[in-house]
Amino acid sequence: MPGTPPPACPGVAPIPAAAGIGLRFPHHEAFLELRPPVGWVEVHSENYLSGQALSVLEAVRADYPVSLHSVGLSLGSAEGLDRRHLSRLAALARRVAPGLISEHLAWGAVDHDFLADLLPLPLTEESLAVVCRNLDAAENALGRQLLLENPATYVQFRHSTIPEPEFLTALAKRTGCGLICDINNIVVSSANHGWNAQRYLGSLPAASIGEFHLAGHSAAAGEAAPLLLDTHDRPVPPAVWSLFETALALIGPRPTLIEWDAAIPPLPVLLAEADAAATRLARCTPTTSDDLAA
């Protein structure tokens, strides 16, 4: 069902165009103790769907806007979505009232086997129809708009017919979804496929972009060299900061997330990265409510 998705439920704390951090288990205790001055927090939805971790998220949510970032919806699955998982996600969203909910342009499940990775899609009309259908189903179940993230990929299929930024633009146009512009993923995919990162960035529909992601990556060894790997295991490198500055100039300020998922450092290191993002956001044109609504 194309068009404007339903408005967010009452009680939602919107995500400001400020720097936020991805909150991971090793930082739960330190974060609740320190209550650092970050603008917002993003968590992986799948880690809080049940059980005791949810109480930590609720404690965080009491004081911070929270964004739910999913990795398991598998919006690119040809067979459609896992309804059980989707209903659990919807229950979490009702409970947490997140400012944003997001997923990836990827697939991870087929024939009820879940492969626990963000796998690449051939970018064809068939895939576009599949992702549109699944996005609509997800947005209907969640009762609100989703943001879809550009993936980091290592494989391009020969039968792809649509360049990735055009594919994302078509998705936003057809479903009304928003987009996450993951700067690190653009750097990684551009290196892996010989794309021009600046041109990719310039081809994205600025008005649909609701969030930036920043992270570190690493270089593959052995037969996979010189691929870049989306490892989120180190500080944001200069190439990503530089493309982020270009993005701010082209697109304007948006909520900006620091992701660090492996070799997780002490919380202050992550907060310093968020400060570095905040400094760049502050240099950008002052934010108005119109910018956020864009």
């Binding site: 990775d117 796998l119 290592y154 494989v155 391009q156 299929f157 020969r158 037969e223 010189p226």
Partner: peptide, 14 residues
């Protein structure tokens, strides 16, 4: 599409 890296190595990352 292979480019500088063989298809098998690209799949190997996944």
């Amino acid at each position: 599409i292979e480019g500088a890296v063989p298809a098998a190595a690209r799949l190997g990352v996944y």
